[in-house]
Nucleic acid binder design. Structure first.
Lengths: 108, 108
DNA sequence: TATTTAAATTACTTTTCGTAACCAGCGTAT
DNA sequence: ATACGCTGGTTACGAAAAGTAATTTAAATA
């Protein structure tokens, strides 16, 4: 009986897309290349490629090409992306306070 | 080359589980019954059931049974769950500021 | 044109999702 | 007793998305 705010629903949809949070966390530390992110995150190249395209389309990240040898491509947060920093920080803080060792055992 | 914090990764995994964000948003408004959430959220009973079980297992929500006629079962946030309020509020604020009408058209 | 390196895609299998139909338990009416 | 109505789920199954590994594209040198 209660309408959800469409903007919130959209935002939540984006942020709850698998791996998007970790990619944002990574990019908050600064510009990153594809292979760096692939190494740092537990995500396959296929999905990393998908998610970077999604985030670029949504205006959250920028893709910068440097025509060096070999070619270098860096991903950075846009202003819209940087504005998500509080969200990520809050999650970090919550995790530190409420995620226990037991939670990490993950004995599903 | 950069290690992710396991607690953060776990928290992000939880929060980025489909529908979890919307369920939290719903429960921040107060106790809710299964059928209320099913009506309010664009989620099927099967997944709502799955997610409620997950969140209960993770200690984020509580399931309270009232033996009335007919039986009433209410879900509420635990302390751990309520502590996620800042995350949800930040997402709301970000959505209001950065999600445009265009974003909502979603013409993928 | 062949080489080198990074970035991205394709082909294929496994997991998760979404829809709709179905079941359980309990109090009440017949 | 048994049949019904109400809430709160679960099951079955086809569709969609994710995971893995091998392959392809592309650009600057040589």
């Amino acid at each position: 009986m209660n309408q959800l705010c469409p903007r919130f629903e959209k935002a939540m949809g984006l942020l709850s897309t698998r791996w998007v949070g970790l990619i944002l966390f990574e990019l908050l530390k600064g510009a990153k290349r594809f292979s760096e992110m692939e190494a740092d995150l537990p995500i396959s190249g296929r999905l990393l490629s998908d998610r970077l395209k999604l985030l670029e389309k949504e205006g959250i990240i920028q893709r910068n090409i440097y025509s060096e040898f070999p070619v270098r491509i860096e991903y950075t947060l846009s202003e819209k992306g940087k504005a998500l920093e509080p969200v990520i920080k809050d999650i970090q803080q919550w995790a530190e306070e409420y995620i226990t060792m037991d939670d990490l055992k993950d004995v599903e």
